[in-house]
Simulated scan of single mutants.
Amino acid sequence: MIPPGRAEPQVRLDVVQALRRALRLLAGDWAAVILAGLVLVTLPGMAARAMAPSADFDIVLTTLRGVLAMLFVALVSFGAGARASGRSLPPPDYWRQGLARALPGLKVALLMGCAVVTGLIVQLFARHGTLAGLVLDAALLAAGLWGLCAALPAVPAAVMENLPPAAAFRRAAALTDGNRNRVLALALVVGLALAPLLALALGMAGTGMAGTVAAWVIAAIELLAWSLAALVPAAVYAELKGVP
């Protein structure tokens, strides 16, 4: 933590270096990340799809899956932060310490998820095809991109510095100040890389493709997406903190 009244040196985010760091974080703790993802992301998703619940219960299951996935993000954020600072944790310590430190990050992740859902709900009321609808869509897109650029490292900041949500968002905004265009570029690179895989998963799920292979393909894509959702912000946090 930077002492009160003392400015933190401004660091220029290197997009390529941040991506490399995220991949190194995954490679360094791949067993812990994958096993945690199997428990918190993969198995709940496969169970929910196998149950084929009613519409009302599907909302409950989707919410529970979201909470578990955000817990995974918070847990991995701690493990990635520990790895970035030079602490190599064996998987049992990775999970135990990550779960013990996950609550601040989980709160932040839930608030970010609520913001996304609120934006989607508001977007439903847009009068599509009209000028007012186009203005609302543009405003929501601009707000979402700005929030992504400003708050991307909020979860690792909350976990590693034990910050409440408001302080974590302020910390993330301070870290990304002067780097938001590069944060946006990084997010676009990751998003474009994942887009074909996510489209494949959505297509397979939407057409109701059955079979073990299809189920595991969808599960693997989900696990990869959530792993990057945890590791890329953790890498950005470490880069903007100036961690070697």
Rank of each mutant, 00 (worst) to 15 (best):
R6V: 15
A7I: 09
V11M: 07
R12W: 08
L19I: 14
R21T: 14
A22R: 00
R24F: 10
D29S: 15
A32T: 12
L38G: 15
A50K: 00
A50D: 05
D58I: 13
L61G: 03
M70Y: 09
V76E: 01
S77A: 14
F78S: 04
A80R: 00
A80Q: 09
A82D: 01
A82V: 07
S85K: 13
G86S: 12
R87C: 05
R87S: 14
S88Q: 14
D93P: 03
L99T: 15
A100L: 14
A102Y: 00
A102S: 09
A102R: 00
L111R: 04
G113K: 06
V117G: 08
A132C: 09
L134K: 09
L136E: 01
A143V: 13
G144L: 03
G144E: 01
W146C: 10
W146G: 07
W146P: 01
G147E: 04
L148M: 06
L152N: 02
V155G: 05
V155D: 06
A158L: 03
V159Y: 02
L163Q: 01
R171V: 09
A172Y: 03
A172P: 03
A174T: 06
T176V: 04
D177V: 06
N179R: 01
N179E: 05
N179G: 07
R180K: 05
R182W: 08
V183H: 02
V183M: 02
V190G: 08
G191F: 01
L192K: 04
L192A: 14
L194G: 04
P196L: 09
L197C: 07
L202P: 06
T207L: 10
G208H: 02
G211M: 08
G211I: 05
V213D: 08
W216Y: 15
V217G: 00
A220K: 06
L231F: 11
A235Q: 02
E239R: 08
